[in-house]
């Protein structure tokens, strides 16, 4: 279903191993990305779950620049939970020094559902995956504002939880923590940049 050969997974911190395993299950090669040079051979990028403040701190400026440039050139990017926060233009309830990658025209609120005691599992329905699928929300973020071309692909309890702008996809939950691979397969179907 795809000609994409190598998908990078930001591997500074968080559940990058689960994304790499999900890519293997989709028969696609996953490549851990920690430094700017690691980004060169990849055709697409996943920003995993984890602590967004930690990841933002560990990301070297050259890598941030490379991700922004490649994304502007059309590289598909998917972010899950902390990854969604990193993709936002603005972050609410974050830290003053937490500069996101600004890959999508949206504002995201950190820990919008509350603390760990409020973390939950739910079924989330979307035409993108052809029906309902399991979703794990852990200290999850919420999209509070978005440009008109940031489309809602799925909602839960009246809130958008999956959004797409061009070939950038952001999920408030963790498909990588379930055995269901449809969100990864959907992401892998995006057209790549012309390089």
């Amino acid at each position: 279903m795809t000609t994409r050969r190598r998908v990078g997974v930001l591997a500074l911190q968080g559940d990058f191993r689960e994304h790499l395993a999900a890519l293997r299950a989709c028969e696609v090669e996953g490549v851990p990305v920690r430094l700017a040079a690691d980004l060169e051979p990849v055709d697409a990028l996943i920003l995993p779950g984890g602590e967004s403040t930690t990841m933002a701190r560990l990301m070297e400026p050259e890598l941030k620049t490379a991700i922004r440039e490649r994304t502007a050139a059309g590289m598909p990017v998917m972010g899950t939970c902390a990854g969604m926060i990193l993709m936002a233009r603005d972050v609410q309830d974050g830290r003053a020094d937490q500069e996101p990658l600004k890959l999508m025209d949206m504002t995201v609120r950190r820990n919008a559902y509350g603390r760990q005691i409020d973390s939950f599992e739910a079924e989330v329905e979307s035409a993108a995956i052809g029906g309902a699928g399991p979703a794990v929300f852990i200290r999850a973020p919420q999209v509070t504002e978005r440009a008109t071309d940031v489309r809602e692909l799925a909602s839960h309890a009246g809130q958008p939880v999956a959004v797409k702008q061009g070939n950038r996809l952001a999920l408030a939950f963790h498909p990588e923590l379930t055995p269901d691979r449809r969100w990864h397969q959907y992401f892998l179907s995006f057209d790549g940049e012309s390089r």
Partner: peptide
Amino acid sequence: RRGTWRVKAGLAEMLKGG
């Protein structure tokens, strides 16, 4: 569903490498 095993073990997965 709150407080499930997946949600409990899942937070630890998010802390990995940290």
